[in-house]
Amino acid sequence: MVNTKVTLCGIGLDNPVIPASGTFGYGAEFAALYDIDCLGTFSFKGTTREPRFGNPTPRIAECPDGMLNSVGLQNPGVEAVIAEILPQMEAYFHKPVMANVSGFSVTEYAETCAMLDAEKQIGWLEVNVSCPNVHGGGMSFGTDPKAAAEVTRAVKAVTTKPVIMKLSPNVTSITEIAKACEDAGADGLSLINTIQGMRIDLRRKKPVLANTFGGLSGPAILPVALRMVYQVYEAVSIPIVGMGGVSTTQDVVEMMLAGATAVQIGAVNLVNPFAGRDIVNDLPEVMEKYGIKNLSDCIGGAH
């Protein structure tokens, strides 16, 4: 028998597999397809203080081994999430959930997190300082170590839940931002968010995305994600949630060897809605193949 359990910021997970924010809604669409309690947890759709429509369409573009999105943090706002969505979620998900939060000012991040802090179902706050698709917010906090630290401190001050800062790869030195968040009290780090990119329509001779730029995800970015998780693992001592192009159980193990305590799966949920279940189901076989008894022993194993 293999042991797939890991512990993320003091909370136990049956396995390290976590659907990533923005690819899993609030879980309902997937709960209709399979029992999502098989997952370690999932990170719900990036939530902001106020409801957001998001960017104009087209918001999606095909890429070699991946996709671009410029959804732009469409969400119903934290009040609707607390009043309507979380009560429904109790019926189809029975584990602590990861709440993904975004904002446009330090105050807004803190307000949203303070409101979510009272919710029993929420295990972790994953604070997104890395959305590439919104202006004047999101990524601008994640590309400056001082701003990232400021958001971290503001959020830590209003919650007792573990705070995981979600970092952008669109920076010169991700380790510098990672260290700034750790020094400011972050309990963990999530990386990487999508890599900024674009595509151009040859017929119209214009950008495919209405927002011009979008975030690249999918298998194309796995090597970049592994490299950054590996680097950040050496730079900090808080746990890392690794993500970026993870599509198979083997990718999960690879990400853990790079330094991840838990692993998020993103774009693959959109092309294979059963990916979360399949990746979890394949864990024992893959672990046996590579002689792994305790999955947690893999964390940082490549260093």
């Binding site: 923005g22 959804v71 959109l270 092309v271």
Partner: peptide
């Protein structure tokens, strides 16, 4: 509309 998933998860085709 251009879609990511086709089943309501990605919010790519919102109007």
């Amino acid at each position: 509309e251009r879609m990511g998933c086709g089943f309501g998860a990605c919010m790519g085709c919102t109007c």
